[in-house]
């Protein structure tokens, strides 16, 4: 299966081993030597939310790390070196956050894509990932969502639970999600509330919708078909042809 590049600019920047920030409508990717070292998107909870929501790190611990190491672009490293976090935890959490934010940052957009050479992120480098791997995973995630339940309307609508059928069971993670769904919160808001990656929440919502446990909103009215145009008649200049016929007809009556 041939796949179009998610972002041709990202492919080019990876090839030229660029360092800087790739700014798109829905988020930003940070590159060092052409590899993705960080990503953020307003749609995806950051590492701070993931670590503090579940109580793994007190908010003050995070703030102090940013204060002390942000200027050196080494917040991630500082969290480990100061004993707040273990290497494996940092890598698992940060990689999860990077692929999550990248999924939204690389979502289809008509807006401009810009690259600021040399710009780095204060979190610092943890575990660089090839741009190709990020692109491939982003495409895989899009396909996975649609394979589960091809109704993108559930991604952005408030999550409205539906009663389970008799005997129908729900996994523990999805039970927590359903319990937090008050009929108003969207998947992105639920992700932030629960301290979970946003894509994981989208996927769980689609799985729940496919199981009939979450409402699937009606798709918006399809846009009216474009105005049908009559095929142009092969007449060089219809006005002149008409005028000639009128003149001929009038002369015939003289």
């Amino acid at each position: 299966m041939s796949r179009a590049a998610v972002s041709p600019m990202l492919v080019r920047l990876a090839a030229e081993k660029a360092t800087g920030a790739l700014l798109r409508d829905h988020g930003t990717l940070y590159l060092v030597d052409g590899r993705v070292v960080h990503a953020e998107s307003p749609a995806a909870p950051g590492v701070d939310v993931l670590l503090t929501t579940g109580g793994r790190l007190p908010r003050e611990g995070w703030d102090e790390a940013v204060d002390r190491a942000g200027a050196h672009r080494a917040v991630g490293r500082f969290l480990v070196d100061s004993g707040r976090l273990h290497d494996g935890e940092l890598e698992i959490c940060h990689l999860g956050a990077v692929f999550d934010a990248a999924f939204f940052a690389l979502s289809p957009t008509s807006g401009p894509t810009r690259f600021r050479y040399g710009v780095g992120h204060w979190f610092g480098t943890v575990r660089p990932v090839s741009a190709e791997a990020v692109e491939r995973e982003t495409v895989r995630r899009r396909e996975l969502l649609d394979a589960v339940w091809p109704y993108a309307a559930v991604d952005t609508a408030p999550v409205v639970p539906r009663p389970a059928s008799p005997g129908q069971t729900v996994g523990a993670r999805q039970r927590v999600l359903l319990a937090a769904a008050d009929g108003e919160r969207t998947p992105a808001e639920l992700a932030r509330l629960l301290g979970r990656p946003a894509f994981h929440t989208l996927l769980d919502v689609r799985r729940l919708a496919a199981a009939g446990l979450v409402e699937t909103p009606l798709a918006p009215e399809p846009a009216p078909p474009p105005q049908a145009f009559l095929p142009a008649l092969p007449v060089a200049d219809p006005d002149i042809a008409l005028l000639r016929r009128l003149r001929d007809a009038l002369e015939a009556h003289l």
Binding site: L50, L51, T53, G55, R56, E89, I92, C93, G96
Partner: peptide, 10 residues
């Protein structure tokens, strides 16, 4: 299964 003290599924 790896149990972490933040939300994960690895």
């Amino acid at each position: 299964f790896v149990e972490t003290s933040f939300d994960s599924s690895v």
